[in-house]
Design a protein around this nucleic acid. Structure first.
Lengths: 188, 188
DNA sequence: TTTGACATGTAACCCGTTACATGATTTT
DNA sequence: AAAATCATGTAACGGGTTACATGTCAAA
């Protein structure tokens, strides 16, 4: 249940509207926690209902921009949440399942899929590096930015790892095909 | 939608019952795709309904062990799925959200949380290494195991990366406290 | 034969997703 | 003023999770 707290964090940094939050979620926090605008609106309504945030707009002002800001209770809730043990989420990656399947029944076109993923992760890596250059390289050691820089670096390392993994799998599939002339298929 | 295909893969490797699959999912495939026994039973029922697997048990034999095996159509479906582009899942990690929050309102007990996570990931890493020693070290280069070894290594590298990240964050928080005597808090 | 563990199943809930609708605002 | 766009919202669905229920089998 991180979404409300991600929103609180984002609103604490700078009060804004739901649509703006949705856009901001494509960056920064969005690298580790994504949300569609429907989720965000739903959650903002709940947060307001719970008295954790307030918005500048009368009831039922559909279509008009609402500006949200965090109330004291909201900040308190965020602190409370921070001091609780976080829920652990395991890795969950469809491609890994496919690699496992390929180990059983052969590649069956997995290479193409991996190449697509490779492109995506390479693009993501390039984006992160661009952000790093733009946001962190000039300010040598602002301690306020330290944690955010660590987050960005975690993203960078993750992408590098993923890219590396893709290359290894491609190489492995290729070499297995070379040795045996053909991907291993147990005939049904 | 990987669960049915993960089940097909697992059943192709060795036909078994739902409960056994649930147990096996705690290992191997389970490192990258988890499922509770309810999900597994639900999905097995669907797969049988769709004619992709068959089970040894008359209708409505509740409580009695059912042995599932993959039918030809099931294997075909798995191959079809493998040649389709896979869905991309972004990272989604609650701890990262907390680190981001800590960058805004200060640590607030985050360190303790990180230490718990550290222990977990260290234990996971140790487990993976144990598996590697047990399953892969003696068989130097069985090409059939190549992909599975790569998967295991991906898990190992991921855990190492996560552990490393935790250490960095702890260090950063600590040093920030040293410099300023106290974690930076904007008073409400 | 009763107890307890095991195997399967039912039900309800919440989050995340998708499709779409409606009110406001800006552009032409 | 009509059209396009923006901001917010409603509704429905599916996967994943949790709690619990029921039937089977083996051990005491």
């Amino acid at each position: 249940m991180s979404l409300p707290h991600a929103l609180l964090t984002s609103l604490l940094e700078k009060p804004t509207s739901g649509s703006e939050l949705a856009r901001r979620f494509d960056k920064s926090i969005g690298y580790f926690w994504q949300a569609t605008h429907q989720q965000i609106y739903r959650e903002l309504a709940r947060l307001e209902e719970a008295g954790l945030v307030s918005s500048t707009a009368e009831e039922g002002a559909r279509g008009r921009k609402r500006n949200y800001k965090v109330l004291t209770a909201g900040k308190a809730e965020l602190k409370r949440w921070m001091s609780q043990p976080s829920e652990h989420r395991n890795l969950r990656d469809e491609m890994m399942v496919r690699v496992r399947a390929a180990a059983i029944i052969g590649p069956h076109g997995l290479q193409e899929d991996i190449r697509i993923r490779l492109e995506h992760h390479q693009a993501q890596l390039a984006l992160y590096r661009e952000i790093e250059k733009h946001d962190f390289k000039d300010k040598p050691k602002d301690p306020k930015l330290g944690l955010q820089h660590l987050l960005l670096n975690a993203g960078i390392e993750y992408e590098q790892m993923y890219i590396d993994f893709c290359h290894k799998v491609l190489k492995q599939i290729e070499s297995a095909c070379d040795t045996r002339g053909k991907p291993r298929l147990k005939r049904a």
